[in-house]
């Protein structure tokens, strides 16, 4: 017992002496920046980190955190102060099972970027006290990609042309994740909008597959795959030299990357919006694709990619 007491008191002494080392206060708590665990998220997270650091804030870097659930839970629990989010993700995840929200948002899956964004932002502010800043003009939505060779041979660059080809009995094998294949606003929305449908033999559904995996299936041509699920701003599209089929009728919800803050944080530092908004305004599809490619294709670290972009555009030195 004596020994245990000694150990306990030593540990307590350690804790107390450690707290005595606490340094002079900085301005408030550091701002904790998070991100999900894929390239674009990490790059955007690093952009936010570097911009805030450059502006003199103390920042804790928690990018590369985990999936949607972990990042969103962490934001709601106050473990992080901000992470880049997509309005489309909000619609298809946490407003999916709320009927009244679906009703209001449902009309906005038509690809009307502004309406969809405004709805999600207002609900998030009212229900969770989460503030969406200015969305980037990019759309990292689901898309269908084909190889350039196939596109040229068949003269197909848009979804209406693709639908015509399918309905005429053309050979198609689509490699896709299960979520995209089944979600009403995913592949079924393409069917409905463009008037075609793929049979079960024409689909290779990989449970939980990311575009990286479906694209690799297309690149290697395994199982005769000639079409793959992809994201609009994927850096890998460039590496594989794929063509993304255009979606002229906007069948997919819009996924615009946007910094989402806890209300508490943005009220304490309202000037942050002025720092981040001009930068996010530059992130259109080609820019984001280039940034993603510099990480995925060239093997730069996300940190370097973000820094190079911010320095080249004169936001930081």
């Amino acid at each position: 017992m004596k020994k245990i007491l000694t150990v306990l008191s030593m540990a307590a002494a350690l804790l107390l002496s450690a707290s005595a080392f606490a340094q002079a206060p900085n301005e408030g708590d550091p701002i904790v920046v998070g991100s999900k665990q894929f390239t674009e998220q990490i790059v955007l997270g690093k952009v936010i980190v570097q911009l805030l650091e450059d502006a003199g804030y103390e920042v804790t870097d928690r990018t590369n955190l985990g999936g949607t659930a972990v990042a969103r839970d962490a934001l709601e629990a106050g473990e992080i102060d901000v992470y880049p989010n997509y309005n489309g993700t909000a619609i298809s995840n946490w407003y999916r099972d709320i009927p009244w929200a679906q009703e209001a948002i449902g009309e906005d899956t038509s690809g009307d970027a502004y309406a969809s964004f405004a709805t999600v932002a207002s609900y998030d502010a009212a229900i969770y006290d989460l503030i969406w800043l200015r969305p980037a003009p990019a759309n990292n939505t689901y898309a269908l990609a084909v190889t350039r060779q196939w596109s040229e041979e068949n003269g197909i660059t848009t979804l209406p042309e693709f639908a015509e080809y399918v309905n005429a009995g053309g050979e198609v094998v689509l490699s896709t994740g299960d979520e995209f294949a089944q979600r009403p606003d995913g592949l079924p929305s393409f069917y409905e909008t463009y008037g075609f449908e793929l049979t079960e033999d024409q689909l290779i559904i990989i449970a939980g597959a990311t575009p990286a995996q479906t694209e690799q299936a297309l690149a290697s041509g395994q199982n005769n795959v000639n079409v793959a699920m992809a994201y609009g701003t994927d850096g890998a599209l460039l590496a594989y030299d794929f063509v993304v089929l255009e979606d002229p009728l906007g069948a997919q919800p819009v996924f615009q990357p946007t910094p989402v803050f806890r209300g508490e944080t943005i009220r304490a530092y309202p000037e942050i919006a002025g720092i981040l908004n001009p930068v996010f305004a530059l992130f259109d599809n080609p820019t984001l694709q280039g940034l993603n490619a510099s990480v995925e294709v060239d093997g730069l670290s996300a940190d370097e990619a973000a820094r190079t972009f911010l320095v080249d555009n004169g936001f930081i030195d």
Partner: peptide, 28 residues
């Protein structure tokens, strides 16, 4: 290390010290 900003940075006094400052949090 305990004198570093990264450990207990920004803590003014013992009464302001939270458990999070000691490294306990929901993520990480």
């Amino acid at each position: 290390a305990s004198g570093s900003n990264r450990v207990l940075g920004g803590v003014e006094s013992l009464s302001a010290l939270t458990i999070r400052d000691l490294g306990v949090s929901g993520i990480g």
